[in-house]
Amino acid sequence: MENATYTQLQQFYAEHMSAIDDGEVERWLDTFTDDATIANNARPEPARGRATIAVVAHRLVAEARAQRVVHRHWTGMLQAVWLPDGSVQATSYAMVVETPAAGSPHLWRSTRCRDTLVRSGGRWRIRERYVRHDDVG
């Protein structure tokens, strides 16, 4: 993939992850298409559509606040290819660093994240996401 798009994707992920880490659910949802799906290897049945994804996102943000921890999603090792229909398949590793209030940070999760992204409404958006959690067999 050419530099310009690859760099856009890196910046997309930085913005996308900081939105959820900062608890800004609406800004995070805006990085998905309306009909987006998210699945993972712990719950293979995907959440379908922004409204369903919103419920899960609000719950995760509320849980982190209740436990007084901050999560930082770091993505890297990004591999991205154009698909014939003009969408992009992006596979990256993601680790989550968890920091408790007044405590020390530690590695909380390690995952692989496979997204299909499309240009829509003037920006990149995720249409399909599959997360493989390394701790789930």
Binding site: A4, Y6, T7, W82, V88, R123
Partner: peptide, 19 residues
């Protein structure tokens, strides 16, 4: 690809990002 040549609002270009 169309998406690679269009102006991308909100993104800083690759050369600047690398610097």
């Amino acid at each position: 690809m169309a998406a690679s040549t269009e102006t991308s609002v909100g993104f800083v270009d690759a050369a600047v990002h690398h610097r």
